[in-house]
Design a protein around this nucleic acid. Sequence first.
RNA 1: GGGCGCGUAGCUCAGCUGGACUAGAGCAUCGGCCUUCUAAGCCGACGGUCGCAGGUUCGAAUCCUGCCGUGCCCGCCA
Length: 658
Amino acid sequence: MQWILEQRLRAAVREHLRAHYPATPAAALPPEALRIEQPPQPELGEFALPLSFELAKSLRRPPRALAQEMAAAFELPQGFARVEVAGAGYLNFFADRAATAAIAAAPCPPEPRLGPKVIVEHTNINPNKAAHIGHLRNAVLGDTWVRLLRHRGETVEVQNLQDNTGVQVADVVAAFLYLEGAAGDAAAAIARVESAIGDPAKRFDYLCWDLYAAIAQHYEQHPADLAAWRPATLQAIEAGGNPVARLAAVISEAIARCHLKTMQRIGVEYDLLPRESEILHLDLWSRAFALLRERGAIRLEGEGKNAGCWVMERAEARGLEGEEETKVIVRSNGTVTYVGKDIAYQMWKFGLLPLEFGYVRFYEYPSGHVAWTTAAGSEPGAPGFGRAAWVYNVIDVRQSYLQEVVVAGLRALGAEREAQRSVHFSYDMVALSAACAAELGYVASAEAAGGKRVDVSGRKGTGVKADDLLDRLEARTRAEVAARHAELPAVEQQRLAEQIAVGALRYFLLKFARTTAIAFDFKEALSFEGETGPYVQYAAVRAAAIGRKAADAASPPAAAWDAAWAGYLDDAAAWGLLWQAGRLEAQVGQSLEAAEPAQFAKFAFQLAQTFNNFYHHTPVLQETDPGRRGFLLWLVAYVQRQLAAALALMGIAVPEAM
RNA sequence: GGGCGCGUAGCUCAGCUGGACUAGAGCAUCGGCCUUCUAAGCCGACGGUCGCAGGUUCGAAUCCUGCCGUGCCCGCCA
């Protein structure tokens, strides 16, 4: 709704500037560059323009006087009631409330700005153990970003890279080969693994979680085994076409399916799972290498500690001493480093490599949506992937340096445009609060940890597994639902519990800004009061309940605005609620602009807060004036739709009851 | 040593593209509100020299400089 008024206001201001202040820089700016703010209090109007402060500088006149001059001569566009000067020189515009209400339901037309396709890469969990709380933050952040982009009309492809050839997988493979009694016999190990995967009583990813920690410990105590097992396993996996490689494939695929199931619980789906093994085998790297060499992006180091390596120089990273920073891309033994592979992958995402993977189905969601994976050849009906205009990589902040190197690689290739359109969507880590670490037995006590947060570690097997956390959340919500809705059948109770648990988890992970390191705490994450997902869900459920009861009483809410209701908008609470609910589109735009999903979460919470307050002070079904009752029902139905839309953008459902 | 973050109420955090902020939220604590649309709610109280010191500005939590504290990164690991 705001977007229509805002557009009109921008156009009107531009006209005004051109007519009255043509010589100022502000008059030359495009309408979308105009700063429009929201006044701190609703009594101050709907839009605030700090424009006079800008003009004051170029015209050398006091802002307040300028604002008054502008306000006096301003021709208000349609939908506006008046303009006032406030504060040190703000121009405050007041909406025509009835006109605004009439356009409340007008949908914002999607206007893709980023291009034909955007790729968002997220989750990227090593397929060697169960997902943990940190992976959940990545997935929730990435998935919400995808939803916000799609809401604005962008075409988004979601990729989840599988590093199935790395050390982490090799270590678990070695654990099955040597620690689990297979005595190095890969065929025996495969049989063992397959029976473990087929055992419904076991969680295969949990089993590997423990095995990974076990072999890490074993390697620490037996360096000779590390020296023997790891390189041999890695080499076999990279070479392919042997029993050890098959064992690795069976393990990593089974774990990838576990991850997909875990993420499915919180409403996260993927379009493509590109595999490192294909990046290696399908010549992707050698094509990228040839290009990098051709363009002089990398060179063979002849001397020094990196002698015999292909390295990339980063000119922009040159220090004051003129020291150059070099990064090894190809090792002296001819193997590619992680960054090298990542550069190739990033090039492919932009369509900069003249080749294509094969694609096969990997996982089908209940909706029928298919997650594909890469393969040597395509199966019939496989779609195309890649060739994006923009790429967002949701990766934690520790990889900032490496992401910079990847972008530098694109730049060195002359792909300046693609370099600028490569976004490292970074976020800080999830650690465990001292109390949480103590609860899990990772430290003796919170005091012993010095009150400091404790890092999670896959190698040590410490951390909160994603499914364990979800199970705990569900157990809590199930108890709560059972107490409140004993009349409902068990399946329905379970459904509500799941929806509320997901709401709690997703909101919890979303409410922190990306740069904030989260100290995970069960008490906070399991809370359903205050600034939480269930709070927002509750508001939506209460709004829906009013509409349902009205319909039961044979007076369902009207779908469209009735001009006869105009007078009821004088009620400050009703108007304030309507206006805030209508801010959803503007909020999506702001969150995208700031690249900060947390801003959107905050908005959803504040809207719920405003509604809960309204709910408490304004009885709707008891309203005796039929006109006002109709108006209130319409308003509540509108707010309900907006709350549901806001929650959906965060991947949170509105339960039938709470 | 260099680079990038962070430091705001007892706790966890918003705000930080300078302006209506006499600094907000949630939790915790204390006190009210269920015969009225679901109390996972509402209302109120308590609580902060926005790390410190300078600077820029008509105006700084917000920008700049320095310092202090704290975290991450700087591998022929991924």
